[in-house]
Amino acid sequence: MIRALRQFAIVLGIALLPALVSGAIQLKWNAEVPPKKDEVTIAMVHNNWSDHVLWVDARTRAKYDHAHIPDAVLLNEDEWNSLVAKFLDAWDPDVPVVVYCDGGSCDASHAIAERMRSELKIEKVYVLKGGWGAWSGK
């Protein structure tokens, strides 16, 4: 019986090996995906602007109320009309704006950044790669 279990373990190991190798390659691949043209990382915010940016939280109000980057301003598309004035009060034309949402498949930060560019004609707008997850996990 012990011999049988040993052989089973060997066969199981052989079967799982390709999956583990594939997983490792995929993780490495994801880790090395460079930021898109309008994206920045936390390291870039620190190195390029000494953390002197206006953070904009594009998530829902409930998530913002629960936790957000210090001094971040809430601006999402659910409440754009009522929140945009407060964002503009905090905005400084000489300071870059960095928008974040949940990260992963979340597209709200890109939508908000695009709306700032197209409607408000604000040029120095970037999106935080990895979003809230990148900040909270740093």
Partner: peptide
């Protein structure tokens, strides 16, 4: 057991 391992894979 081998068949089971293959199925898992």
């Amino acid at each position: 057991l081998s068949l089971l391992a293959l199925s898992l894979s």
